[in-house]
Write a protein that binds this DNA or RNA. Structure first.
Lengths: 112, 112
DNA sequence: CCAATCGTTCGAGTTTTCTCGCACGATGAT
DNA sequence: ATCATCGTGCGAGAAAACTCGAACGATTGG
């Protein structure tokens, strides 16, 4: 029996409005920032204090909007940014948003 | 008695999450694209078919999030992008989003 | 095999956003 | 002055998003 599988939109199907919406949520924007810094991370590290169902909600939204790639590894769930796909589809977007976040996001850096 | 006045956040107060949220709505994203192409525009041109109160709702949201500058001119209301402020605050963001929109936004070009 | 752990799904409740009709003040033209 | 026009604010209703507890299947370790 295959492990958990996840549906991901193809690179060409990623819609700008959905990406912007995904990034407009502070929790998710913070997740994306962590992913940009740390590469592939265990989903639990994206929100150690969040209820699991809430965490799943946000990671699923990021996945369905084409921002992240999700893969099951044992019981855990590894998340990484779709940097190449996003760069190909919307050149510069991710970098620009992350730069903007770094300079004016939330100055209270509660680093994990 | 002064004409209508509008409150605008200062450039330094513009928050990335709010800007992304403002741009994540298809109607508003389309408005921003028109503004980028046409410069300062009469608000009515941003949504000729929308109810007035709906149009006000979206233009107000764009204004309050720091994306556009609004000024009363007679009975009309002129809108323009805050390109310089946005560029200073979030370098490259607006251009990147508009490029992304142009290449993958909505292919149905209903040009005004 | 059994128990603990993890992510997912479902459902309910809360909050936010969106839409739009209506009344009002301001403006411009007659 | 009068009247039509425009944007705004308000209120209500609908739609969408967020949060989170509980139950379930899958996986790991004893």
């Amino acid at each position: 029996m295959p492990p958990r599988t996840y549906h991901h939109p193809e690179a060409g199907e990623i819609a700008i409005a959905r990406v912007l919406f995904a990034l407009s949520e502070p929790l998710r924007l913070n997740m994306v920032r962590m992913l940009a810094e740390q590469g592939e991370v265990d989903s639990i590290n994206l929100g150690p204090d969040l209820p699991r169902s809430t965490l799943t909600h946000h990671t699923s939204l990021l996945r369905e909007s084409g921002v992240v790639f999700v893969r099951a590894e044992g019981r855990k769930c590894m998340i990484k940014l779709r940097e190449e796909d996003l760069e190909a589809r919307f050149p510069g977007l991710l970098g620009t948003v992350l730069t903007a976040y770094g300079s004016a996001g939330d100055e209270g850096e509660t680093d994990a």
